[in-house]
Amino acid sequence: MPLLVGALVTTPPPPPAPPRPPVVRPTPINPGEYVPTFIDPDGVEWAMNPPGQEFFTLNAVTGYGITPVELITRPDPRGGVVVAGVRDLPRTLVWPVRIRDRTHLGFLARWRAIGDALAKTKRKGPGLFRLTRPDGSAREVLCHYQGGMEGEPGGGWLDDTPELSLLVPDGHWRAPEPIKIPWSSGDVDDYFAPYPMISSGDVLGDAVTVTNPGQVEAWPTWRLEGPATQLVATNNTRGQAFTIAHDLGPGEYLDITTRPGRVTDQDGEPVMGALVRPGSVLWRLDPGANDLDFAVTGGGPATRLTLSFYPRWETA
Rank of each mutant, 00 (worst) to 15 (best):
Gly52Trp: 02
Val23Asp: 12
Arg91Glu: 07
Asn49Tyr: 02
Glu152Thr: 15
Pro21Met: 08
Pro15Gly: 05
Val168Asn: 06
Arg98His: 01
Pro16Tyr: 06
Phe192Asp: 07
Ile179Asp: 03
Gly268Phe: 13
Leu93Gly: 00
Thr303Asp: 02
Leu307Pro: 00
Pro21Glu: 14
Pro2Glu: 11
Gln53Gly: 10
Val208Glu: 15
Ala316Gly: 12
Pro68Ala: 02
Thr103His: 14
Glu33Thr: 12
Glu269Tyr: 10
Val168Pro: 00
Gly127Gln: 01
Gly65Leu: 02
Phe129Trp: 13
Asp116Gln: 12
Leu89Ser: 10
Thr27Asp: 13
Pro15Trp: 02
Arg110Lys: 15
Val82Lys: 08
Gly268Lys: 08
Arg87Gly: 02
Tyr195Glu: 10
Pro16Gln: 07
Gly214Val: 01
Arg304Phe: 00
Arg102Trp: 05
Arg304Tyr: 01
Asp190Met: 07
Thr57Met: 12
Pro90His: 06
Pro153Met: 09
Leu108Glu: 13
Gly148His: 09
Arg284Asn: 14
Val281Arg: 09
Val9Tyr: 10
Leu166His: 02
Gly127Leu: 04
Asn59Ile: 06
Ala218Ile: 07
Pro227Lys: 04
Phe56Tyr: 15
Pro14Asn: 06
Asp76Thr: 08
Val168His: 03
Gly127Asp: 04
Pro134Val: 11
Gly268Ile: 10
Leu93Arg: 00
Met272Ser: 09
Trp219His: 15
Leu118Phe: 13
Gly125Lys: 12
Trp173Asp: 01
Asp160Val: 10
Ile39Val: 11
Thr10Ser: 12
Val296Trp: 00
Asn236Gln: 14
Ser199Ala: 14
Ala47Leu: 09
Thr132Cys: 09
Pro19Thr: 09
Lys124His: 12
Pro311Asp: 07
Trp222Asn: 00
Leu71Pro: 04
Glu225Thr: 15
Leu8Gly: 06
Ile39Arg: 04
Ala207Leu: 09
Thr121Lys: 01
Leu118Gly: 00
Val188Phe: 03
Val69Ile: 14
Lys122Asn: 13
Ala274Thr: 09
Val203Cys: 01
Thr11Glu: 15
Pro126Gln: 14
Gly151Val: 13
Pro19Val: 12
Pro75Tyr: 05
Leu93Thr: 03
Thr103Lys: 13
Phe107Thr: 04
Glu314Ile: 02
